[in-house]
Amino acid sequence: MRIAFVLSGLGAGGAEKIVNLLAHHRRQSGDAIHILAVNADGPESYFPYDPDIKVSTLGGRGLGSQGRRIAGASRQIIALRRRLAEISPDLVISFLTKINVIAGLATIGFDTPVIMSERNNFKSQSMSSVWRLASPLAARRASRLVMQTADACDALPPGLRSKATIIPNPVALPDGFAPLPGDGTRVVAVGRLEEQKGFDLLLEAFARFARQVPAGRLTIFGEGPQRAPLERQAQDLGIGDRVHMPGLTKRPGDWLLAGDMFVLSSRFEGFPNVLLEAMMASLPSIAFDCPWGPSEILSSPDMGVLVPAGDVDQLGDAMLRLAGDPELRHSLGASGARVAAARYSMPSLLARWDGLIADAITVPATKRLAPVA
């Protein structure tokens, strides 16, 4: 079978990681795999691909005014449609809200099933009215919809819920990973430096933490448009010399060795992969109870600390509690690792993807060609 995976870029995000995992898994099963990165300018990928997986980049960013963005999206749709016509895939799998819209429109009239996978919180993320209106219409083109949480399924329009299935991301540690013991003073966070990830809230909480833990250090891995404001905020809070923002790690998972506890400070999520990775690595974890994902992952208090969304004081208190209690850090780390391994193991979740793919390619052609409006 020939499968075309369609995604935005080839960076260090969660969608890029799961596409990489699925692509290699399906290639090992004998499928011919094409990766189509709509917004990438070059084929270099943070998550490397085997040479027999074909990576194509369309380099079609639509920037500027709304009119220019619409024109840019139209060019992306045309470019993707042409590339798919050349590949003639048996199945298209797309990832993320806007890319799902582009893939849905680009495949109109193609006798090809499409699986659309939503990875972010489409109710909370910033989106123009054009994209917000187009999204449910394009989703009608999908044979199947993959959501990551029950909340995400519930947020779908009623007419789309029958197509939806929940498949959370699988999690695995880097080869040869071994956790290092720590004294509870090192706090680590990771994510794109943007408002969604709430690192401004984390800095406020860490300032509270740092006043009582003189040796405390915070490392935030990631890159993005909020770097300069966050650096200024750290200086204004008097913690500039205790906050380190080194950018992206050279290798996936390197950040796991930089902390004694992990903090997820997001305002909203689709499904926080980094929380699962931290748990799998036995890092005791604290998370804001933001929509969606943390409450489903940290479903009992022995797995990690869930803090009311946006509550900076309680976040700081939770960090102080873990710093001062080695036994609690150890028990949360051990319990979190056990649960993450049991619920989100690679083999079981990849098998669920295999079942979904097998189901999608059996959809009758008359249903594949359902109109988008």
Results as ranks from 00 to 15, higher is better:
A205S: 14
A205Y: 05
A205R: 03
F206V: 03
A207P: 11
R208S: 14
R208M: 15
F209K: 00
F209Y: 15
F209I: 00
A210M: 08
A210L: 08
R211I: 13
R211N: 14
R211L: 14
R211V: 14
Q212L: 14
Q212V: 14
Q212N: 12
P214Y: 08
P214T: 06
A215L: 14
A215N: 12
A215F: 08
G216T: 10
R217G: 03
L218E: 02
I220E: 00
F221L: 10
F221I: 08
G222A: 05
E223T: 06
G224P: 00
P225I: 11
P225K: 12
Q226P: 02
Q226M: 10
R227V: 00
A228I: 13
A228Y: 10
P229A: 10
P229E: 07
P229M: 11
E231F: 00
E231A: 07
R232H: 12
R232A: 14
Q233Y: 08
Q233C: 08
A234P: 00
A234D: 00
A234M: 00
Q235F: 13
Q235K: 13
D236M: 12
D236Y: 05
D236H: 12
L237G: 03
L237S: 01
L237R: 04
G238K: 02
G238C: 02
I239R: 09
I239F: 12
G240Q: 06
D241Q: 14
D241I: 12
D241P: 12
R242K: 15
V243L: 06
V243D: 01
H244P: 04
M245S: 08
M245K: 08
M245I: 14
M245Y: 11
P246M: 11
P246F: 11
G247Q: 09
G247Y: 08
L248W: 15
L248D: 06
T249D: 14
T249K: 10
T249R: 09
T249V: 15
P252R: 02
P252K: 01
G253E: 05
D254E: 15
W255K: 01
L256N: 04
L256G: 02
L257P: 04
A258E: 13
A258W: 08
A258F: 12
G259H: 01
D260W: 00
D260A: 00
M261W: 05
M261P: 03
V263S: 06
L264P: 08
L264Q: 13
S266W: 05
S266H: 07
S266N: 04
R267E: 06
R267C: 07
R267T: 10
F268G: 04
F268S: 09
E269Q: 02
E269S: 03
E269W: 04
E269A: 04
G270M: 05
G270L: 09
G270F: 10
F271W: 14
F271S: 04
P272C: 11
N273L: 04
N273R: 01
N273W: 02
